[in-house]
């Protein structure tokens, strides 16, 4: 294996259990104490693994075990409290598909904005513009000069997927994003993912669909309760997870 692209070294991240943990000046003044809860839990702890270039890793585990949190740590949008995650190169995060888009700007402006935020120059976007719009579909093309918020949520996700997957980043993080759109669009997404994989990109996929996982991934990582339970060939990890699910 060549140098790892993703190195996760003993990562741990601690969250507050209560939703309402914001400090309130009013409460501090009235009661003289900070009444917010100090009750915390580790969403992830002692997670370590390396991912090599071109590997396709599937992340499985029950709901609420830190899969999305781990993806965010790798994407650099959460900072771990313990250990560190280092990425050799940039990341194309298919996490919040429409995260970089702004409702009041047109679809066209949004493509340039999101592409720019992820480091593409204007010329690079000019080149890819048609591909992006083609991929997103004819409805998106028809509405290019329409404010983005007038798009249906399906169209918004399509455009998001199209922009992010046209980035040059060596690592692609996918958080259940394949579940967007209708069957036809999903097939298109599958096609795009396979293209990216065969171009040597590294893929990190969170999914609850065994079929998707086995289709793309060669290696599986199984998280449960914020701990790493298994790390091995996708088939084995997926079977073990399925067996655990039946028991529960």
């Amino acid at each position: 294996m060549s140098d790892p692209v993703i190195t996760v070294d003993d990562v741990g991240i601690e969250f507050y259990r209560s939703r309402k943990r914001k400090l309130s000046i009013r409460e501090m003044v009235l009661k003289g104490t900070d009444t917010s809860s100090k009750d915390t839990f580790w969403a992830l702890r002692n997670i370590s693994f390396d991912v090599g270039e071109g590997e396709a890793v599937g992340l499985v585990g029950p709901n609420g075990t830190g899969k999305s949190t781990l993806l965010k740590v790798i994407a650099g949008v959460l900072i771990p409290d313990e250990g560190q995650a280092t990425i050799n190169g940039g990341v194309a995060p298919l996490i919040e598909l429409t995260g970089g888009f702004l409702g009041e700007l047109t679809a066209r402006e949004n493509i340039y904005l999101t592409g720019g935020l992820h480091g593409l120059t204007k010329e690079q976007i000019d080149e890819r513009f048609d591909d992006i719009v083609d991929f997103a579909g004819p409805q998106v093309r028809a509405g290019l000069n329409m404010p983005f918020r007038h798009f249906s949520s399906g169209m918004q996700s399509r455009l998001g997927f199209a922009v992010i997957t046209s980035l040059d980043e060596p690592v692609i993080l996918v958080d259940e994003a394949l579940a967007v759109g209708d069957q036809a669009f999903r097939n298109k997404c599958y096609g795009r993912m396979e293209e990216l994989l065969s171009a040597g990109r590294t893929l990190f996929l969170v999914s609850h669909s065994p079929a998707d996982l086995k289709r793309f991934c060669t290696r599986g990582i199984y998280l449960s309760g914020g701990r790493l339970v298994a790390d091995g060939p996708m088939d084995e990890v997926s079977d073990r997870y399925a067996a655990d699910q039946k028991k529960a």
Partner: peptide, 9 residues
């Protein structure tokens, strides 16, 4: 917050 959450600038 949406932009902050989706980019690691």
């Amino acid at each position: 917050q949406k932009l902050v959450r989706s980019t690691n600038l």
